[in-house]
């Protein structure tokens, strides 16, 4: 598995989209710090960009990559290789190369400009989101044979997690504002890794006190260590479950 992954990585790190992605992240991160100066404000800018861009690029790129590599996958399938190790190496290859783009474009400049805990959390969240959206992309691509439909699906997932989900939550809150929804709100955030990641980062900034208004349980959960670890575990579950499903589906799939 690692052998194929190694070749996929060496191919992907020369991919111009990934290079552009890393470069853009780098420029934007530095730009936010140069323009906004204040630590927290720049962090918020980078956070907003990350939450938008990372899922989008990741999900679209991974989906396209799968479809484009279909014939290559067929060639690999003709070799004495297990199916699991083929899809596994694709996942690993995407994860490492998109992850490297995050580290180079986001993690390093962030750490250099603002060497605080919040920078680590933000980079970690970006990495987790990459893992999650690669998984979702593979799930869609393995499931949907047609490239155009698969792309549409992947884009929809992005719009859903970045926009629609929050809209539904807001509507729900409007309609149930007379009820004690605070605990429900906490559980709802678990259902969207983008929201969860955003809150994990925000809790490390000044905005934490405002988040506290969402409710005491909410505040307590996210400001305590075990809450942070629980969030991390939930994010990992978000990364693991779609991948596990896509691996499973790939095992019984007709190529």
């Amino acid at each position: 598995m690692f052998k194929i992954a190694k070749f996929i990585i060496s191919d992907l790190i020369k991919n111009w989209i990934i290079l552009l992605y890393a470069f853009f992240l780098l420029l934007a991160t530095i730009g936010f710090f140069l323009l906004q100066g204040q630590g927290d404000k720049a962090i918020l800018g980078v956070l907003n960009l990350t939450l938008m861009l990372v899922p989008m690029i990741t999900v679209i790129f991974s989906t396209i990559y799968y479809y484009n590599m279909y014939e290559f996958m067929v060639l690999l399938m003709a070799q004495p290789l297990k199916r699991g190790s083929i899809i596994g190496s694709f996942y690993l290859g995407l994860l490492v190369s998109l992850g490297l783009a995050i580290v180079a474009g986001l993690g390093l400049p962030l750490w250099l400009m603002h060497p605080h805990w919040v920078s680590l959390v933000l980079s970690g969240v970006a990495l987790l989101l990459s893992g999650i959206f690669i998984g979702l992309a593979l799930l869609v691509a393995v499931w949907v044979r047609d490239k155009a439909r698969g792309m549409g699906f992947a884009l929809f997932l992005w719009v859903y997690f970045v926009l629609i989900f929050d809209g539904l939550v807001l509507l729900m809150m409007y309609n149930f504002s007379d009820y004690p929804i605070e605990k429900v709100v906490l559980y709802i955030t678990f259902l969207n890794p983008v929201d969860l990641g955003r809150i994990m980062v925000l809790m490390q900034t000044e905005a934490a006190a405002l988040m506290g208004y969402s409710g005491a349980i909410f505040q307590q959960f996210f400001s305590e260590w075990w809450g942070l670890i629980a969030s991390l575990l939930i994010m990992l579950a978000w990364a693991f479950i779609p991948v596990a499903f896509s691996f499973r589906m790939f095992r019984d799939k007709d190529l």
Binding site: V162, L163, V194, D195, L210
Partner: peptide, 8 residues
Amino acid sequence: NMLLHSFL
């Protein structure tokens, strides 16, 4: 408040 700084 949990939606603070979200894209929406």
